[in-house]
Design a protein around this nucleic acid. Structure first.
Length: 240
DNA sequence: ATAGGGTTAG
């Protein structure tokens, strides 16, 4: 595995060089991304070394790609450390950079740290967007902290960051998990008012939870609405 | 001009 990875690394380099194509920060950042997706983040860091050796300047994209590579490998602490190094080195993280870290923190159960980072980015003048909020709203809902999730939901609206179908779907799921399907249905209505179309996932969550509550006729009602809106039930919907 | 972020369900 290690040998073949190294071979990929060196032959990629030789091939590009033998074609007479010179590297720039774009191609090298793409190369870093490729290695990171192959779980070869260390090779990504060797590319960073090459960038510096070539006298090129790594930028926010280069760093963000490496941070994501560390997250892909579950090295969340390493990712946070490298993020701090980046900031200490005078490089400004942007909303993409923050979203990579926030998402990784949320996915590994460190929702509180993610919320701290959300506060931190605002203080640094980097505005969060719907992606940032969705990650945290989803994590809070999965932690059964729906009140906190709804609080964040109103916070984002105060900032004029429009929630989308994912935001609503996460909240609906969170409410359903606590048996608050009435509130979940209210959110479904609210979506219509906001011109946000529920999708197959939104509908399936509602149908599944209504069935579990023994409200099968209500579930069938939702399924009718779903079909009316042109969303085709799938195997998940029918299983429910 | 060319590169980087999430996406929710049984």
């Amino acid at each position: 595995m290690i040998m073949s990875a190294r071979r990929i690394f060196t032959t990629t380099e030789r091939t590009i060089e033998s074609l007479g194509i010179s590297h720039d920060i774009y191609s090298l950042s793409i190369l870093i991304d490729c290695f990171c997706r192959l779980h070869l983040v260390n090779f990504g860091f060797s590319i960073l070394g090459k960038i510096i050796k070539f006298g090129l300047e790594p930028n926010t994209v280069t760093f963000t790609t490496l941070i994501k590579g560390l997250c892909i490998d579950g090295k969340i602490n390493g990712a946070v450390d490298f993020f701090n190094d980046m900031v200490a080195g005078g490089y400004q993280p942007d909303v993409h950079t923050y979203n990579v870290i926030v998402n990784a923190l949320c996915k590994c159960g460190k929702t509180n740290v993610a919320i701290e980072l959300l506060k931190g980015m605002v203080e640094r003048g980097c505005e969060p967007d719907v992606v940032t909020y969705n990650a945290i709203v989803d994590a809070l809902c999965k932690d059964k902290l729906v009140i906190e999730a709804l609080d964040l939901f109103s916070q984002m609206r105060n900032k004029c960051i429009s929630p989308n179908v994912v935001t609503y779907t996460c909240l609906i799921q969170g409410l359903c998990n606590l048996g608050k399907w009435n509130q979940a249905l209210a959110l479904l209505k609210e979506m219509a008012g906001q011109n946000i179309s529920p999708n197959i996932i939104t509908f399936s969550i509602l149908i599944d939870n209504l069935c579990k509550e023994g409200l099968v006729s209500k579930a069938q009602e939702i399924m009718k609405i779903m079909i009316q809106q042109g969303v085709k039930p799938d195997v998940v919907t029918y299983n429910s």
